[in-house]
Design a protein around this nucleic acid. Structure first.
Length: 259
DNA sequence: ACGGTCAAGCTGTCAT
DNA sequence: ATGACAGCTTGACCGT
């Protein structure tokens, strides 16, 4: 049902009405919703001169809606974005625009022509600016912007919907990257701690006498290398295992290693 | 040829 | 019931 409504908005009928100065966009009110995170937006240049856009169309493109007087209808397609008439008649800027998006010929319109609308840089820039101001538009803003851009309100609406989607996708990608790095760091930390644990275990197993002594008399330890009894006077004031389990554990038998 | 981008279509959900 | 929106999809276009 909604699809029907949407389609009505973009039908040839709606375009024809729009062409005669009436918008069929019937939005009543924008429900305030949290907009997507805008902090990730890629900044764009300030609004440039608004250039005319082209809405090109052809029949029989396989999309069901295009075949019943939709935006792509040869009769309305070119007009759809230009309430004032054909794009080539607007502001005399069509020359440059046509270099980028050449206007299709009548033959092409009748036959197998292209149809995709490409917004001009100026249109995109202004839309970006508005999007940075607010991620959603109320009906008045939408109408004004559409008029400013020589687009239908529906097109402005669609642009904002797609823009929000892109914004959200970008944000998700950034978050994913952040989590990926967190995961990497935790994995490395885990490996390091596993190694540390392994070292401690091997130390413990290779020094049974030390361990026994430690357990019996934690204040003293016997060096497994020189068999000298080492007092717990290294300043740690704690057992050797506890000392070893410190993050950067000190070696109480460093005096042997130094030999 | 192929993948990326983007305007636009479709559908479901939510708020009014 | 209706409109706005999100999410997904489609198809044209473009750069490689």
């Amino acid at each position: 049902m909604d699809a029907c409504k949407v389609n009505m908005c973009s039908t040839g009928l709606s375009l024809a009405l729009n062409y005669y100065g009436k918008s069929t966009d019937s939005s009543v009110g924008n429900r305030p919703r949290p907009s997507s995170g805008l902090e990730l937006e890629i900044s764009s240049s300030a609004a440039a001169a608004i250039e005319p856009s082209l809405t090109l169309g052809l029949p029989g493109d396989g999309r069901k809606d295009w075949s019943v007087g939709t935006q792509s209808s040869p009769t309305h397609s070119v007009m759809s974005s230009f309430p004032g008439g054909h794009p080539s008649k607007i502001n005399g800027e069509n020359d440059e625009a046509e270099k980028i998006w050449p206007r299709i010929s009548d033959e092409e319109e009748d036959g197998t022509a292209r149809k995709k609308l490409r917004l001009t840089k100026g249109q995109s820039a202004l839309l970006e600016d508005k999007f940075r101001e607010h991620g959603t538009l109320n009906p008045k803003q939408k109408q004004d912007l559409a008029q400013q851009l020589n687009l239908r309100p529906r097109q402005v609406e669609v642009w904002f919907q797609n823009r929000r989607a892109r914004s959200k996708l970008k944000k998700t990608e950034v978050e994913l990257e952040f989590l990926r790095k967190c995961c990497e760091r935790l994995t490395e930390e885990n490996v390091r701690l596993q190694k540390e644990l392994q070292e401690l275990k091997s130390q413990k197993s290779s020094a049974p006498r030390y361990t026994q002594l430690h357990e019996a008399a934690p204040a003293f330890a016997m060096c497994p290398s020189c068999n000298k009894v080492t007092g717990a006077s290294d300043g740690s004031g704690s057992g050797l295992l506890a000392a070893a389990s410190k993050r950067h554990f000190s070696n109480p038998f460093a005096h042997c290693a130094a030999r």
